[in-house]
Design a protein around this nucleic acid. Sequence first.
DNA 1: AGCGGTTACGAAAGACGTAAGGATG
DNA 2: CATCCTTACGTCTTTCGTAACCGCT
Lengths: 307, 307
Amino acid sequence: MSKRLDRLALLETFARIARRGSISAAARDLGLSQASASRQLAELETRLGVQLIRRSTHELSLTSEGHQCLADADAIRGAWDALEERFREDQPGALRGAIRAVVPVALGQLHLTAAAVDFQRRHPEVSVTWTLDDEEIRFTEIGCDIWIKIGRPKDERLIVRSIATIERMVVASPTLLASGRIGRPQQLASIPCVALAPFEGHRMTLTSKRGAKAMVAATASFVTDNIFAAHQAAVQGIGFAVMPRWFIAEDLQHGRLVDLLPTWRAPKLTLSAALSPAGRRSKRRQLFLAHLLDALRQVDGMDPQHK
Amino acid sequence: MSKRLDRLALLETFARIARRGSISAAARDLGLSQASASRQLAELETRLGVQLIRRSTHELSLTSEGHQCLADADAIRGAWDALEERFREDQPGALRGAIRAVVPVALGQLHLTAAAVDFQRRHPEVSVTWTLDDEEIRFTEIGCDIWIKIGRPKDERLIVRSIATIERMVVASPTLLASGRIGRPQQLASIPCVALAPFEGHRMTLTSKRGAKAMVAATASFVTDNIFAAHQAAVQGIGFAVMPRWFIAEDLQHGRLVDLLPTWRAPKLTLSAALSPAGRRSKRRQLFLAHLLDALRQVDGMDPQHK
DNA sequence: AGCGGTTACGAAAGACGTAAGGATG
DNA sequence: CATCCTTACGTCTTTCGTAACCGCT
């Protein structure tokens, strides 16, 4: 049995194999020969006394033990990375390493990508993997560092911070209505509606500035799961829509959309940041998140929390 | 620069050196040559870019970075150990590894040591380091797994569980008073007192079963920091004493001591178990703690918490 | 066939122990 | 001068890449 093989390297190789679903691909990533990677995986399995990855020729799959091990491996590697970083913090700007982040599609496209790119430019030694996805992700499976999500992640093993609230309002193209405004929420029922699938059904609750609530049943004439599509539909006057304020702030300024019910608002959404407990003290992760939050603060219609 | 040295081994060597205060001693423990241990320490320092241990010939001392690193090193090694154990759990009884525990002196002497010994006997592959100490310990410095303490540890980085409450009462030798009982707390002021230094000063608050409070100023005729000494003094009739019920349950039964104020009690103490976050999932640590708690449950006058 | 994982073998790399050097109380 | 850490050197273990082998699609 080999003794001198770095156990942390074993974990790294294993994690790479698990995520790439291929030993040879992982070996390429790590600058090893396939043989080496294969041997390291076998070695780890021997040490732990369990099969971690089921090989069925051209098909690798994690065993249940493999799933558990992957989470642990990330935690351990994260802790080591944090230790290595800890004392490099003194030399600012010398950040290095990898960051994997997942953010909501629209927020990513319109605002956060610029911040992510800027961060990478300031820290050239850091490699950023930037995924835009609105769905619930399998956080540990993909080895994510930061996950920004609308709503609150369900996974209780994650560290979750509420970072902002998203104000939403009822808007429509000025061409839709002669008056440009309507008086009471109930009048919405007579107007067609552009609905955004993932966020709400076809009924909605509005709250007035005084705290009064109104339940409105909307008749959806256009339903989409993509906010850009919904936006286009609304601007072209198909119907009214419930939109995050940050998303349509410019349209309001230029008069492409109007606030149909200025004294009423749709329920706010919460924006959360989820972090794995693994690299808790990672400086680069902290700074990256701070950078994203800075960008969010610039966004009109977004109410940042925590200083 | 060496590349293939197991980073976890580096951490282990460092931790051993830090705790033993000597490279050669650590090397002996680990079955290495002094040269190897020295090299490994140097290698770790190079990797982290910081001096961890100050060598002043015949005197090793941790730098401040060394202190931080030691805590991290324990966490990382603990996480790896937990990973190794995780899949061995299936074979019960096959526990192995080391446990370092610190418990209060009196509790250890009278009750817990039997449990610790029993545990070791059931798991011969486990090595138990068993320290009896009432003082605040530097948990991470000594690499402790389980610390049972009267009161609540201050270190916020530890996982702390309240495991029992300790009922305390005012007792005295029947030879001290003709009546064997007194009526009101204030009457204590006229009787000499045996005081236990670490737990309270010379004033004390008593609570009646109905919730009434009474402040009593006692005149100490015998002050000691050792509960066995205090006990002897009390039994020999020097004065009354405030004692944990579990400690004097037998004396009450045999009439060596009497409950002076059966309807009044001194403030309860809380017994806590502190664990380092490091080896959170360590099976052996969990089982060991459970074993100690089982023993505590047998103790008369101790109120266990959490099932 | 072609792609991917495992096993065999030679070569190179690195770590270990021994031993010498140096500093301190 | 005894102790303890550091550095140098030769040996030996171990790992790596190449390459052959095998099992699927």
